[in-house]
Amino acid sequence: MSFYNTSNNANNGGGFYQPSAQFAVPQGSMSFQNTVGSSNTGNDNNLGVAPDPLPVGILHALSTKGYPHEPPLLEEIGINFDHIITKTKMVLIPIRFGSGVPQEILNDSDLAGPLIFFLLFGLFLLMAGKVHFGYIYGVALFGTISLHNLSKLMSNNDTSTQTNLQFFNTASILGYCFLPLCFLSLLGIFHGLNNTTGYVVSVLFVIWSTWTSSGFLNSLLQLQNARLLIAYPLLIFYSVFALMVIFV
């Protein structure tokens, strides 16, 4: 209380001179912090003092333990391996879409899986003797941005349900459904695909990716009578990557 009165008087006194007012405010804040700190030091019940101090000792210093209430590192970064495995299984087994996609997995927009798949695709192309990393990144970025904007514009069909489509959700879905094309490029290492059999296999893999991603996007956007319209640009997107696998 006494400090409050003193600082209030100081502010009133400083009101007549602007420069001194500018200098008075930081001093007041510093002195206030010091006073509060000194007053809290004597109170053990106050939460301002660190409630869970780090354990002392050389053994604790060398261990990997931190604060007891600290979340795990993977959770803090945002990588959820359960979601990654579940999404990968959904891509590999597309029949499961009949039961519907859990909303929690749809809203998890992680990019760890997609990055691994794209790098894997480039690596397999590299093993087959083709260096297309720049084009993979360019087409992937351009296609992802275009498909996201197209999906957002088309998702206003039903105004009652305004789905907030995030860019990373679209990127995550497109990246996960890229997995069949990784298998295609893996086949391309051992066998040349520039023949009739290669064309048929490539078309099947592209249709597989398209079907899976259109299922994901249809669940996310809740479109009506527009599943084919959403699937068609996805077909074109994955076909461009299939062209890179088939032709040298």
Partner: peptide, 14 residues
């Protein structure tokens, strides 16, 4: 303005 552009994307399969 994007709402106006979105009108041109309100398509259906039919």
């Amino acid at each position: 303005g994007s709402q106006q552009i979105s009108t041109y994307f309100q398509v259906s399969t039919r």
